[in-house]
């Protein structure tokens, strides 16, 4: 349902995933109605038939109503429940792997607002504009307490943690405006920490982006910051480097000085900016200073985006 309607029975379903989840939901309701119906029917039947003083015969129970029936319904229940588990879990497993090349949008939660930044640097607050039929991945972090980014019309919710990226992915396919809530209690104005998600046709989204002020490439902004903070001094050094090469780093496996390897994902890049001494690359001295306190979460996002997009070749020639 859109936010301005006056009554809601079932939530709007604005993605294939949402409609699939609804199927599971209705399936479970079906199972529940059958079980509750059975229990209530038995309670009423026995309760009335065997009320005190009723003429119903009350002979000995037949022999088979014993251990066998007890074991029988235990096993039946067990299999029914395992089936429901599998039914629900199977659809969850397909959502673990993210779609390739999603539109990546950054979300920063803070008491009590959502700050959102699109790949081209357009920012908005408490509103999230997305194109329809395009896979979107939200990369989220909190500046203070735990929040939760809840989009009921897409049937997704993910806690937003301080100090650690979490993400949620969706492909909306019905245009419209839907509720956005913070679902994890976060203090005084928790109830007001919400807004809406606007799903628009692709062309309209592009037009909307172009009309926003402050549009500049997020990776470009990150590159600027990279130079400003003096990172280039070591990481772009010619010849023998004091710091590891960043070209093509994202997604690769890095040998650590302490032994072992780590995958260079967003979390690793973020940690390496804030706590560079923790996971030092093999062959380098732990000389990088921490940028904790000097860069905001938004700035870390742009730095990470820059490093992710940095392929090296182009940079080498311009250096």
């Amino acid at each position: 349902m859109t936010a301005d309607s006056h009554f809601v029975f079932l939530p709007a379903a604005a993605s294939a995933h949402a409609r699939h989840v609804d199927w599971i939901y209705f399936g479970l309701i079906g199972v529940s109605v059958v079980i509750v119906g059975l229990v209530v029917a038995l309670l009423l039947t026995f309760g009335i038939r065997y009320r005190s003083g009723s003429p119903a015969p009350r002979g000995k129970l037949p022999e088979w109503v014993s251990r066998e029936i007890e074991i029988g319904w235990t096993v039946a229940t067990l299999f029914a429940f395992i089936f429901i588990f599998w039914f629900a879990a199977a659809s969850f497993l397909t959502t673990i792997g993210a779609a390739s090349n999603p539109l990546e949008i950054h979300v920063v939660g803070k008491q009590w607002m959502w700050k959102i930044e699109h790949p081209n640097g357009v920012r908005e607050i408490n509103e999230l504009h997305v194109p329809a039929d395009v896979p979107v991945r939200l990369v989220m972090i909190s500046q203070d307490v735990i929040h939760s980014f809840f989009l009921p019309a897409l049937r997704i919710k993910q806690d937003v943690l301080p100090g650690r990226y979490t993400s949620e992915s969706f492909t909306a396919d019905k245009t419209g405006s839907y509720d956005l809530f913070c679902a994890e209690y976060c203090g005084s104005d928790h109830a007001r920490m919400g807004g809406r998600i606007v799903v628009m046709p692709k062309a309209e989204y592009q037009a909307w982006l172009d009309a926003q002020p402050g549009a500049e490439n997020l990776a470009g902004k990150g590159r600027q910051l990279f130079t400003q903070l003096g990172c280039a001094g070591c990481h772009f050094e010619k010849g023998h480097r004091r710091a590891p090469d960043l070209a093509g780093l994202y997604g690769s496996y890095v040998q650590l000085a302490g032994g072992g390897t780590v995958r260079a994902d967003e979390a690793y890049l973020r940690d390496s900016i804030l706590q560079p001494a923790r996971q030092v690359v093999a062959g380098y001295a732990p000389i990088m200073p921490s940028f904790k306190g000097t860069v905001s979460e938004d700035q870390i996002f742009s730095l990470v985006t820059f490093i992710k997009s940095f392929s090296g070749d182009r940079e080498e020639t311009t250096q």
Binding site: P11, V21, I84, F85, A88, A89, F92, P152, K157
Partner: peptide, 8 residues
């Protein structure tokens, strides 16, 4: 207990 339902 069903994960996709719980998420909502």
């Amino acid at each position: 207990a069903s994960i996709p339902i719980d998420v909502q």
